[in-house]
């Protein structure tokens, strides 16, 4: 059976225990920060999924679990037929080769004492490549793909000689040099100047188009998600509140939280009058989460019914799922 998707996440949970003191050892009641609370989604081969949300929504944790930087608490993740529960050496090795991560801060993720060549060659050496000429060739090829030209010159520079955008390209070159199938990019452009962000976004898109890479793009910036991604999942306090085709979600948001997020983005057009949705900008306590819908305390459309609903996703439009119990029409009427 051939499956369309590369990654399937089912009922994923990540809880952090906050019982630390001696007193807590003897108490039966355990409290947790529920960073991710029962989320499911799939990413198809060659697709870029954008994960949006505020700080504390669990989007970065989701990304880190998908590259196994963190252990999951409950649920299952399958990657290319490989189950995360499989801890065999062979499976692990294959996984590490197939999945790579690109981090937010290109100033801190490169070793300042390594030349660019050494940085990019390291993963090759770890995966057993010994032939020096072959390593050199691969590194130059990766630099070319990351558009660091002339590659032969960049290879022997140190990170401090490069600009932020160039460093991020090095990080990308390091990520793709062992030909992974899947990349998690966590806010890869948020540290960069807006004028060079476009280049990095175009590069990521080219990687997908030319190398068939699948990607999870984690960001709080909806306009970059709209530019780069095929689908978007919006997270709020550990839950997915809306998921669907990126253009559809951004043009026709169904969940009140998505509407709020979109109404908060400034528009570079002085004549455009933005309709602001006023809400409380503080997140609720993450340990004692709101009962019922998690967005209810801040939601401008909330009713009493919202305090007792269980989280569920409803298909409101074609392949667009929202966790709000009300349809878009009902929400508009309530205004």
């Amino acid at each position: 059976m051939s499956n369309e998707y590369l990654i399937k996440v089912e009922n994923l949970k990540k809880y952090y225990s906050i019982n630390k003191g001696l007193k807590d050892v003897f108490s039966k009641e355990k409290s947790y920060v529920k960073a991710i609370d029962d989320i499911s989604f799939t990413i198809n081969k060659g697709e870029i999924l954008g994960l949006a949300g505020e700080s504390g929504s669990g989007k970065t944790t989701t990304g880190e679990i998908l590259v196994q930087l963190q252990e999951l608490t409950d649920g299952s993740v399958t990657f290319d037929g490989y189950d995360f529960a499989d801890k065999s050496k062979e499976a692990n090795r294959r996984f590490r080769q197939d999945v790579q991560m690109i981090f937010q801060d290109p100033y801190e993720t490169l070793n300042p004492r390594f030349t660019i060549f050494e940085t990019i060659a390291e993963p090759l050496k770890i995966f057993g490549m010994k032939d020096k000429d072959e390593i050199y060739e691969k590194v130059i090829e990766a630099l070319e793909i990351a558009e660091l030209r002339p590659a032969e010159q960049f290879a022997f520079r140190y990170p401090h000689e490069l600009s932020g955008g160039q460093r991020q390209r090095v990080a990308i070159a390091r990520g793709i040099v062992i030909a992974p199938k899947f990349i998690v990019a966590d806010e890869p452009v948020s540290m960069l100047d807006v004028s060079i962000r476009a280049d990095i976004l175009n590069l990521l898109r080219n990687l997908r188009d030319k190398m068939g890479l699948t990607m999870l793009y984690v960001s709080h910036d909806l306009s970059t998600i709209k530019y780069l991604c095929d689908r978007i999942a919006v997270m709020y306090l550990g839950k997915i509140v809306e998921i669907g085709d990126v253009k559809e979600v951004i043009n026709n948001p169904q969940h009140p939280y998505t509407k709020v997020l979109l109404s908060s983005v400034p528009i570079a057009d002085p004549d455009y009058i933005r309709e602001r949705i006023e809400i409380d900008d503080e997140l609720p306590d993450q340990i004692n989460l709101p009962v019922g819908c998690r967005f209810e305390p801040r939601c401008p459309f909330a009713t009493d019914k919202c305090k007792s609903v269980d989280h569920a996703l409803f298909e409101r439009r074609d392949k667009q799922w929202s966790a709000c119990i009300y349809t878009d029409k009902e929400l508009i009427l309530k205004k």
């Binding site: 600009s163 476009a198 175009n202 306009s223 970059t224 528009i267």
Partner: peptide, 19 residues
């Protein structure tokens, strides 16, 4: 170089090459 959230398809973003 600026991505926009509005539904005007500006086409591909182009950044300014160089530093």
């Amino acid at each position: 170089a600026f991505p926009s959230i509005l539904d005007i398809d500006k086409g591909d973003l182009i950044s300014i090459p160089g530093a």
